[in-house]
């Protein structure tokens, strides 16, 4: 009596399925990789108290075309996390403006108590750099708040 299969009745141990239990791990690895490598903002927030305005509007411009100029309460100016003197602003902004294909928008993020002559000098620096589109960054003021004032 011949044995069926010549005695090799054991099946192959190698699975014919693609292993899919680790696919979730791969997905999460990709997710975490992109989370870690994505950079959204170039500069960190400076400690300022925002001025408030009721007419605050969202700025319809790509994030990479917005340059923040921070003015702290003591009048010190920060661009991209570095402090600059007032006289340097124009020469810092001008090459960035040229690199952005004249699309750069300056967001002046100034403390509410800064003396206006600082802001005026800053505007003159920006005009000298050829930048004309400027945003005075503000927080949205609610009408209720305003009436209390």
């Amino acid at each position: 009596m011949p044995i069926k299969g010549g005695g090799f009745s054991r099946k192959s141990q190698a699975s014919s399925d693609v292993p899919d239990s680790s696919m979730a791990d791969i997905a999460f690895l990709l997710l975490i990789f992109f989370m870690v490598t994505t950079v959204f903002q170039k500069d960190r927030d400076r400690p300022i108290i925002w001025p408030e305005a009721e007419a605050t509007q969202k700025i319809d411009e790509k994030l990479k075309n917005i340059l923040n100029i921070w003015v702290q309460r003591d009048g010190s100016i920060f661009i991209n996390d570095r402090p600059y003197a007032m006289g340097e602003v124009s020469s810092v902004v001008a090459p960035l403006y040229a690199a952005s294909d004249r699309a750069l928008v300056i967001s002046i993020r100034s403390d509410r108590e800064v003396q206006y002559n600082v802001i005026d000098l800053l505007q003159k620096q920006l005009v000298a750099a050829g930048v004309v589109r400027v945003v005075f960054a503000t927080e949205l003021e609610q009408r209720m708040q305003r009436e209390r004032r």
């Binding site: 509007q57 700025i59 400027v134 005075f136 960054a137």
Partner: peptide, 12 residues
Amino acid sequence: KDKGLAIVLPEE
């Protein structure tokens, strides 16, 4: 999004 009061400065 960035928000604030937009203004256009005069050219030099």
